[in-house]
Design a protein around this nucleic acid. Structure first.
Lengths: 123, 123
DNA sequence: TGGCAAATTGGGTAAGTTGCCAAGTATGCG
DNA sequence: CGCATACTTGGCAACTTACCCAATTTGCCA
């Protein structure tokens, strides 16, 4: 991987890292319905406001959200709504993985415990 | 954030984490052209084969890629090609962020060094 | 000006991540 | 069988990240 390619993927990874946390994914999702203040988001998340503020700052640093100060409050909004398209893909991956797990469980049952553990032997 | 919502975003975050590394993003990109062996990918990445193997294992764990053993070799391929759509969004975010940086740099120049550093004082 | 509310920043600790080497596993071949 | 090749796994040191608490900054208003 040459330096230029590396730099490009490092830049992409920085954005992905910003999304690689449940709270931050939740924040992005919450902002899909329009801008919200830190306090409002803090209430939704249910963590310390300083924690939420730091999460938002990280999202802003990589350019995923933007902030707008109004009085003492700061409203955050989505800067890159195209992220939302990705959520469907994530659900897709999760569903496929779950199906795969199920398939494996059925096709390669454990040596012991095969008598009636599944509870579907009659159906 | 109620427990069920938390669980859903944790599951999503697990996938995002798997993508939150330059090497793993590179691997996903490399696999967009079809399945490749670990040795082949290792050559492209330029790291230790054990490192690449672990990256691939992680991608497989979350269901992003799949492996197929053939003889002594293991071929990996994309299980969730929809990820590739996201790369365009990432580039979008990067471009927008860069433009934003430029805009800020132009609108709020440093107090010193404003003589002709930009080279566009005459335009 | 003093005081309140909203938000950010700093700090310390606990937990997670990464990469390389070494060792182990699996397959093919003579 | 013995050996080589391809890959995976274990383990450890270096580094990064997350959270809560405390302190600070910012803006509003009496």
């Amino acid at each position: 991987m040459d330096p230029q390619t590396l730099a490009r993927f490092e830049a992409r990874a920085r954005i992905m890292k910003a999304l690689a946390h449940p709270t931050r994914l939740f924040l992005v999702d919450a902002l899909s319905g329009g801008e919200k203040s830190v306090a409002e988001l803090t209430r939704m998340v249910g963590a310390d406001i300083s924690t939420v503020s730091k999460h938002l700052a990280l999202l802003r640093t990589v350019g995923l959200v933007r902030d707008r100060k109004r009085g003492t409050r700061v409203f955050y909004s989505l800067q890159a709504p195209c992220i939302l398209n990705f959520f469907g893909c994530l659900e897709n991956v999760l569903r496929t993985a779950a199906e795969e797990q199920l398939r494996l469980a059925v096709s390669t049952p454990l040596a012991h415990d095969t008598q009636n553990a599944n509870g579907d032997a009659t159906g």
